[in-house]
Design a protein around this nucleic acid. Structure first.
Lengths: 293, 293
DNA sequence: CATTATCATGATTAATACTCATGAAGTGAG
DNA sequence: CTCACTTCATGAGTATTAATCATGATAATG
């Protein structure tokens, strides 16, 4: 009995559009044309017989239903790939290293550098999965991952890569009052302590006039801020371009170093394997280079 | 970053061939030609760069690696369908009933009868998942399932459908000694108490000369018996055709009713929903008809 | 305002899925 | 043993889906 399923090409395009926030970026990532990706998104909407995106200002904003669907489907695709590569690696000499990455960190920091690793390790095939949390990576049985946290990952060895600085940003069109508490405070679900940490560092003890909605996706949050929904405390790394271009302002005070940071993690029983050690050694050197920048 | 994945059509053909044990049967089930299914199996072997089947006597016997791969992949496909239909059902008036079935029971008993249900309930769309155990069905969040067991399924309402009778069978080409203990006793992982139950019912307390390998798949077990690997205690329902055709013999004694049987199960919180009640009412009547046969 | 970026869509091309036909080998009955 | 039927693999061809190129409308930026 055949199942009722969209094609994998369709699902991967859908996923990439949500992850990148732009059809054009998604297409680059998948090595397809913008047209192909646009069609696949429309194909999926036709297949499920409902719109999955709100079209707004030449951008596609995913519906809640679309985000829920992606959250359940994306790990399935990751596991399917893992199992397929596992099957293949049982017949080849090459080693497969399953690497878990946070979407924005992965696309903005690591992917541009990853060619350096693959160039020097042709015997190690990378299988890259994306996840938002440590739990995601555990569930997917990754060999290594770049996770965000405080360094304590139960059952995993962790190696500090870099800190994260965070700062509140606002849209220039909506900036009127220098008092950060006068705005709605938008929340990042992956950064629950961002607001308290930043306010504490400024010695501000009062409460904001309003706590805003919670979102899990940086690109969407940046769009919400630019639309004037409120102020969000975001990692400096992710808003650097928008600040430089003047699309966002950071007028409320300096960026502060968060309690959490980025760590390379690996299950205890794998942390000393040759492939994990090779990747760790390479990545720690890259992170040192970034600190020297 | 695009994943390295075989197509869904490929995976479904691979799955169907293993489930049915014959390319031709798999093709019928999928409403494709034998040729298409044969090609897809070869496509997958080429994709993963290893044979997934041993070709023997016009049949395809899956390798261990193939079975492992299927066990991990099949539930992923089930869940992907469930989530897709869930997404679709949030926008339609139709109800989706997610039904879990045991592979052999499903294909041999229920599927031939299922048209009777869909004919009378056009408002209920069926989403059919296969699993081997109660745990499989729990994990997949089915609305209802036909499970094998003793009637105790924690957190689930159960309705008895039918008993199962089991009996030891052997290949006519290898039958020489009427003492069942003189043969290797092949084991079914889904029927761990089959041998003890049957022997106890015959008042046989001695042990067999050899305990044979354990398998989880009826079709493969039947093939192993026919090849002369030993004797297996199998459900009468599944060996009826082979016995009638003389491909198997049951010379050691009568079939006995197992302690376990087939039950329709549904999570407690769903058991009184309209869709589950509709399916339950229909299936209990079908099971009564079978008893009257 | 001019230039660039973005998405949707018509027309066309490329790739994959599938069918029909055929042949070789296996199975079972007489 | 012969014969009829079944089964799988494969060549050739057809059908369907995926993807590209080109274009236009709209949005964003300097």
């Amino acid at each position: 009995m055949k199942r009722k399923l969209p094609s994998l090409a369709t699902l991967e395009c859908f996923e990439a559009v949500i992850r990148h926030g732009l059809v054009t970026r998604a297409a680059e990532d998948l090595n397809l044309t913008q047209s192909a990706v646009s069609r696949q998104v429309s194909n999926l909407e036709a297949f499920v017989q409902q719109p999955l995106f709100v079209r707004r200002r030449k951008r596609l904003m995913p519906t809640d239903a679309a985000l829920r669907y992606l959250r359940s489907v994306s790990p399935l695709l990751d596991t399917l790939e893992t199992e397929t590569l596992r099957l293949m690696s049982s017949s080849t000499e090459n080693q497969v290293l399953t690497l878990g990455l946070l979407p924005t960190f992965g696309s903005r920091w690591l992917m541009p550098r990853l060619g350096g690793f693959t160039e020097h390790h042709h015997d190690i095939q990378l299988n890259i999965l994306t996840g938002l949390t440590f739990e995601d990576f555990k569930r997917a049985n990754v060999d290594v991952a770049v996770a965000y946290g405080n360094g304590n990952f139960a059952g995993y060895r962790s190696f500090h890569l870099m800190n994260e600085t965070i700062q509140p940003v606002i849209s220039p069109d909506h900036y009127a009052n220098p008092d950060v508490l006068s705005y709605e405070h938008l929340q990042m679900s992956t950064r629950p302590s961002a607001w308290p940490d930043w306010l504490a560092a400024q010695k501000i003890e009062a409460m904001p006039s309003k706590i805003g909605p919670t979102m899990g996706h940086f690109t969407m949050m940046i769009e919400a801020v630019r639309s004037g929904l409120g102020v969000a405390v975001l990692p400096s790394m992710y808003v650097r371009d928008d600040l430089k271009a003047g699309r966002l302002l950071a007028p409320f005070g300096p960026a502060v170093t968060s309690h959490n940071g980025y760590y390379l993690i690996s299950p205890d029983h794998l942390a000393n394997s040759k492939k994990v050690a090779a990747f760790k050694d390479w990545l720690l050197i890259e992170a040192q280079k970034k600190k020297a920048d």
